[in-house]
Design a protein around this nucleic acid. Structure first.
Length: 118
RNA sequence: AGAGUAAAUUGAAUAGUCGCUGGUAAAUCUCCGAAAGGAAUUACGAGAGGAAAGUCCGGGCUUCAUAGAGCAAAGAUGCUAGAUAACGUCUAGUGAGGGUAACCUUAAGGAAAGUGCAACAGAAAAUAACCGCCUUUGAGAAAUCAAAGGUAAGGGUGAAAAGGCGAAGUAAGAGCUCACCGCCAUUAUGGUGACAUAAUGGGUCAGUGUAAACCCCAUCUGAAGCAACACCUAAAUAGAAGAUUAAGCCUGCUCGGCGCCUUCUAACUUGCGUGGCUUGAGAUAUAUAGUAAUAUAUAUCCUAGAUAAAUGACUAUUUUAAAAGACAGAACCCGGCUUACAGAUUUACUCUGUUU
RNA sequence: GUGCUUAUAGCUCAGCAGGAUAGAGCAGUCGCCUCCUAAGCGACCGAUGGGGGUUCGAGUCCCUCUAGGCACA
């Protein structure tokens, strides 16, 4: 992921979750905020609630989301903070690659993140 | 064929594409950072479990304490012999209990060193008292009452009642006596031992249960933990020394003090990074010793090391009734214990039924 | 990761050194009182986290599992 940096700090997450715009899909939801930096880089954060599943399952979902994001990375606009969350009401067992791929497509469509050139 | 007991194994495989983590090598001197340091490119080969879990025991390792040893306190363990670095673990046995059996369970020292407790019920919960039974004497017309003595059978409650059952015996009774069973002691034999078997003797067989109640005896234990600990960088703090005045405060001025600047030292905290970190009571195979746990020897092998935390995604094929669907994810490392677990396989053995 | 600690009615707590029908307050239900409600009075309802063991007997003692809580950067 050459164009993207991972977010790690708590204050970064709080900034995006409070100021960002909210989009939702069937299984995942996203907060997106345009950044002030002029760098052509996106900041990605993924968070999954502690009570939903144990650490291994959570990491698995994180990996799947990151992998899907990698697929869309070249098609979306640059200079944004993006945070993905797992919906609390969704069943953990539905966390397959295909489901999340479709969800992410709908979210990026709603947010009009996909560049029109491609 | 059915039901069951014990022990052991397994916990999908192969190929391709794209990624993740760290390792080795090469090259570039490119990027990030205040610095320590980190990142990026290419190639090669590596990358979760039988329980990695619970954190219930034991050890290594590190720091602190300690001249050395002992006692006390506190805690743990508790049949015997062996194994082990050690253990509360394991192996083989003994006793007790359970099961038709294969087999299973067992914190199993001491109650006569002492203290406590045993609710309710019951005469009484450990000293043997009370009621009762019997004999004699006295009173009375009699029923009965009183006194003295002999007894422990009975007193039906309780989880538990002073060895059990029967006979003989007696005024009434009693291990008072006898047979059998149990109990205790001594001796002999077998066994390394726990213990077993046999014989002899004992009626002072007169001391119930509880120690996962206090306790006694024997054995063991210094304390804390990798968020330990060691090092590096920066900032702030304290102390010492130097330099003295460019700004500021106590105060209007002087002196003085604080502070500011530089250097050194110290311990703690915050943040960053590195080490600790994986070659070890190591794994596999074979042989020897031993019933076994295990030990010894030889050969071969090197097999995760993360830190917002790596094992994934997709495609194809194979095995399969069906294709990953059980429990579950390393965090310093080992030896155990305990608990969870879909499906599949192997070996040995027991009982029941049917047929020959 | 490491070290501790707790679990008793719907809620907050008692329960001594094993011997109870497990107690109190609030809450709930019914009744009395009142013109009605509140307050008050009376009655009722309802619990030892799960599983083993020791013991005649376990809420209490021991083991084990489960679920919470706390501390340490």
């Amino acid at each position: 992921m050459k164009k993207t940096k991972m977010m790690k700090k708590n204050y970064e997450f709080r900034y995006v979750l409070s100021k960002g715009d909210y989009y939702t899909g069937k299984y995942i939801e996203a907060f997106i905020k345009k950044s002030n930096n002029k760098e052509k880089i996106n900041f990605l954060g993924i968070a999954i609630g502690v009570k939903l599943a144990k650490a291994v399952k959570r990491n698995h979902i994180k990996r799947i989301i990151r992998e899907n994001y990698q697929f869309y990375e070249n098609f979306i606009k640059e200079g944004y903070y993006i945070v993905f969350l797992w919906k609390k009401k969704a069943n953990i067992k539905d966390s397959t690659f295909q489901n999340i791929k479709e969800d992410m497509k709908t979210i990026f469509d709603k947010a009009k993140m996909i560049e029109e050139n491609i």
